[in-house]
Design a protein around this nucleic acid. Structure first.
Lengths: 80, 80
DNA sequence: TCATATTGTTGTATTTATACAACAAATATT
DNA sequence: AATATTTGTTGTATAAATACAACAATATGA
């Protein structure tokens, strides 16, 4: 299982699934499947999405659950 | 099409396909397919391989052809 | 050189990712 | 509230990734 932040990245940009799907050239329902975790993106699609969102691939996809914002902040504080 | 450096990374470590395959829990022939570019790794396998080789994912996989060592050196020199 | 291990090739089977359609449920817009 | 847009669900179809087997070709090592 691979975790992803597609939904967050997408809504941050104020895009609908259809718009994102068009941008990376997949069916709009494919975006839905990915966001719900029904299946993983292919490597190819993962690269396209990361590129589209202008983030490194492992900021959009991770083999381990992403930290919540609260956890990120706690980690930052601990690292001071 | 996604490019990869699995063959290089693997032979740098002096491993056979079988050994690498066992380490990332796939069939040894799957490694062969990937090395020959017959098909792409899944995102899951890509993460496992990158982790195994201790390199960032995009050092092992890229949507664009990797530079040769000569090109890398030329780029380094140009950046001086 | 002979034996063994590794790699390449071909072929079949299964699983997973993607496409597409129809329609219901939920949100947003006017 | 009525309408339109977006999202969720289910179902079918195809393509791509993976497993596995058998065997040929190459390379490695005794």
């Amino acid at each position: 299982m691979i975790y992803n932040r597609i939904k967050t990245l997408r809504s941050d940009k104020g895009l609908s699934r259809k718009e994102l799907a068009d941008a990376v050239e997949v069916n709009f329902q494919t975006i839905g499947y990915l966001e719900r975790g029904d299946y993983n993106a292919s490597l190819e699609l993962a690269f396209k999405l990361a590129e589209f969102f202008e983030v490194p691939l492992d900021m959009a996809f991770s083999p381990r659950p992403f930290k919540t914002i609260a956890e990120e902040l706690a980690a930052l504080k601990a690292a001071e």
